[in-house]
Computed example of a mutant assay.
Amino acid sequence: MKIRNQIMVVLAAGTLLAGCGSGQIGDTGGATTDPNNKNLALLTGMRGEPFYVSIECAAKEAAAAAGYELNVQAPEKFEQAEQAQLLSGVVSSQPGAVIIAPTDDKALATPLQQAKDNGVQVVEVDTALEDKSVAVTSLSSDNHAGGVLAAQTLADLVGQRTGTVLALNTKAGTSTTDERARGFEEEIAKHPNLRLLPTQYTENEPATAAQIVSATLAANPDLVGVFGTNLNTGEGAGTALANAGKSGQVQLVGFDASPKQVDDLRNGRVQALIAQNPAEIGREGVARAIAAIKGEPVERETRTDMIALTRDSMQSQAQYFYRATC
């Protein structure tokens, strides 16, 4: 089935352009940062998740090329208390900048403000705080547009069939997946043959996503589509549909392109993936952290490109596949 070609969202592949919104230059304020500080810290959202591994690998390469040391930390789960504890240890080592994917858009504001007050430049990657005054710059995918793209892709896959559609979110208060869910909901409402069920939260656990999809199938035999807002929700949904013998009958659109998800796309357990560009986010995050340390201006917000991968297009877009190891 032909998927509409409107797959490039916001930017051309592999590039970063000046940001969205006001396009204002970030404020490198806070306590004075030593411009000769060569130490950087990266705190991703979860250890071992291929999206964050891809950010880490690119960030390490960029830091080494620029002559900077990069200390990488990550919580075992996407959970703010553990990340806040790691952040405290990182700040005590006095890096010039911390590059972070906040696991909660409110709860991490206080410790990150304290880091800023101690002369540590804050660079957000992937996720962001609700308070825009803390970080000097934010880099992420245009997640609302990614949700819109997911809905368009799912509607094309379903065609003229009528039925219900389920969106799986992770944790309330996660800026990225909340925006994806919002974009999906707004776009799917434009397709009268599809009825969106209440969004369900998985706590970022694949097993929970699988349980929700199994229960939804039992309660809604007319289920025709599922959207998983991130890697873990998509993987869990794929497992449930396969176990029910519904792979390919219920169209599944996932977010991200981990090795397992790519395999699932190849073997038909997933019909489409909305892939981000984590390597570009990692490289540019380091570049902006170094610029902020030196007191140079940086763009306050930038959005990177995304693309819809299908079984037919995946090999020509292999540069979007995520890495499991560096």
Rank of each mutant, 00 (worst) to 15 (best):
Q6R: 14
I7S: 11
V9I: 12
V10K: 15
A13M: 11
L17D: 13
C20E: 15
T28C: 06
A31K: 10
T32V: 13
D34A: 10
D34M: 08
P35A: 06
P35M: 05
L40G: 11
G45D: 05
Y52T: 04
K60R: 13
E61T: 14
A66P: 07
V72G: 09
A81Q: 12
A84V: 14
Q85A: 15
S88V: 11
V91N: 04
S92N: 14
S93T: 14
P102L: 05
P102R: 03
A109H: 09
A109R: 10
T110Y: 02
Q114L: 07
A115I: 02
V123E: 00
T127S: 14
T127W: 04
A128K: 13
A128W: 13
V136C: 11
T137Q: 12
S138Q: 15
D142L: 06
H144G: 13
H144Y: 15
A150N: 04
Q152S: 13
L154P: 01
D156P: 02
Q160Y: 03
G163W: 00
T164H: 04
V165A: 00
N169R: 03
T170E: 07
K171M: 12
A172V: 14
T176E: 07
R180H: 05
K190V: 05
H191E: 06
H191L: 00
R195E: 00
R195A: 00
P198A: 11
E203S: 15
N204K: 02
P206F: 12
P206D: 03
A209C: 02
A210P: 09
A218C: 06
A219F: 01
D222I: 13
V224K: 02
V224A: 06
V226R: 00
G228H: 08
E235I: 12
G236L: 06
A237E: 02
L241C: 07
A242K: 12
A244V: 10
A244P: 06
Q249T: 09
Q249D: 09
V250S: 00
V250T: 01
A257G: 02
A257W: 10
D263G: 13
R266K: 13
R266F: 05
G268F: 01
R269D: 11
A272E: 01
L273C: 08
I274T: 06
A275S: 10
Q276C: 13
G282T: 07
R283D: 03
A291V: 02
P297G: 04
V298Y: 05
T302C: 14
R303G: 14
M306F: 11
T310K: 08
S313A: 05
Y320E: 05
Y320A: 05
T325S: 10
C326A: 08
C326K: 09
